[in-house]
Design a protein around this nucleic acid. Structure first.
Lengths: 210, 210
DNA sequence: CAAAAAATACCTGTAAACTAGTAGAAAATT
DNA sequence: AATTTTCTACTAGTTTACAGGTATTTTTTG
């Protein structure tokens, strides 16, 4: 006799992906997709009344940052296992997801078969990471590059810098001293471990800070 | 009596998206998904023997640039209508796709309903663009910002600039005068219509030049 | 081969960016 | 309420970037 089905919730803003997940997971007898959501808000309002085992979570949602969603789920519903899903393998995001409770992480180019395996494994209490992700994690064991945390003001100035606005102009815009802007610039360059504004912008975009 | 079904080929490297497209389009009686491919190579080898009406083409394929694929299909099979599909709305790519024969363009957050509408409309000989894409096209009518063509040397220097390397260092590396590097920098800034290196890097990344 | 485009290099001057150290006031956090 | 972080601001000096113009050589293309 079969045991109870694994309850899965899918969160992704692409209807086509949801449809794909529904179909693929529906083919497995031991998995039941109980709900699908396009955004984080709908997910959270439903989590108050619905019980699930696993959440397949797209990291790029329209209304909320994937890492934040993960954090919130883990905090309020620690029993729910989360599998992250994204198109590109951005190391810093993958690490943040895992740090915030994700038990698995896959790229969107996975086969449905692999996804089914992942869900089973995670439901059993194990973890699951696809090949590329595994490499990232292995690298980061040696390469302890912590993600630098920027303050609100720093992020603000970072964006303005990336738009080609100069220090004096930024100062005028924010109604602060140019000397202060220079300080923020300096801190940004230091925190991100870069040598100048050009590289700062590049790294910031890579890190998805802009 | 119903007329013949519209033959559709789907090309996308994400199995989940293909599954979603298959299911969604399969629900429409007048559309028939005759084949699906994960990459451009398989598509082209099949196009020699298979006849189709419409190709739904993901722009980010593993083996070939979406724009190139589009160009090649249009050249060899002018009767086939192409609908571009991508996650992000990169203006320059959308424009290049249209320039190379794509009759429609949608973002991946479309509903299956909209996609079906698009396929019908394109099959009738019209064009179809989703909301966001339409905005891009409208903008580009006034904003005739042709994609600036960079020379080999300029691209080389652009990359070095984005890596935080200064003019004197670049000069040493390339064994040319710093004055020459300055000239290239100036031309880059002028061509891209930006104000400084920081913005140059940002725009270059947006334009996928880096 | 000739014309066009690209790569090279120079000059002059100004403005901005980067380095380094210091420090008080305001906000946020514990 | 106390501590920490963030935001603010300053001095002073060096280096780099940016703007504008000009011009020769090399490479590419028609």
């Amino acid at each position: 006799m079969k045991s109870e089905k694994i309850k899965v919730i899918v969160v992704d803003d692409h209807p086509l992906v949801i449809e794909g997940l529904r179909t693929s997971l529906g083919e497995d007898d031991s998995i039941e997709v109980i709900k699908c959501f396009n955004n984080a808000a709908d997910l959270f309002s439903s989590l108050k009344i619905i019980i699930t085992n696993v959440i397949v979570l797209d990291v790029n949602l329209p209304d909320m940052n994937g890492v934040e969603v993960c954090k919130k789920i883990t905090k309020k519903h620690p029993h729910i296992k989360i599998i992250g899903l994204s198109t590109y393998n951005n190391p810093s995001i993958v690490k943040q997801m895992i740090k915030n409770g994700a038990k698995g992480y896959l790229l969107k180019n996975v086969t449905s078969k692999e996804l089914v395996t992942a869900i089973h494994q995670i439901h059993k209490g194990q973890s699951y990471f696809s090949g590329e992700i595994h490499t990232i994690l292995a690298d980061s064991i040696f390469n302890t590059n912590a993600i630098p945390k920027l303050t609100r003001r720093e992020k603000e100035i970072l964006i303005l810098v990336s738009e080609g606005i100069t220090t004096p102009q930024i100062a005028k815009k924010l109604v602060i001293s140019p000397l202060t802007v220079e300080t923020h610039r300096r801190n940004l360059i230091q925190k991100m471990g870069v040598t100048n504004a050009a590289q700062l912008v590049k790294i910031a975009i890579e890190q998805k800070l802009i």
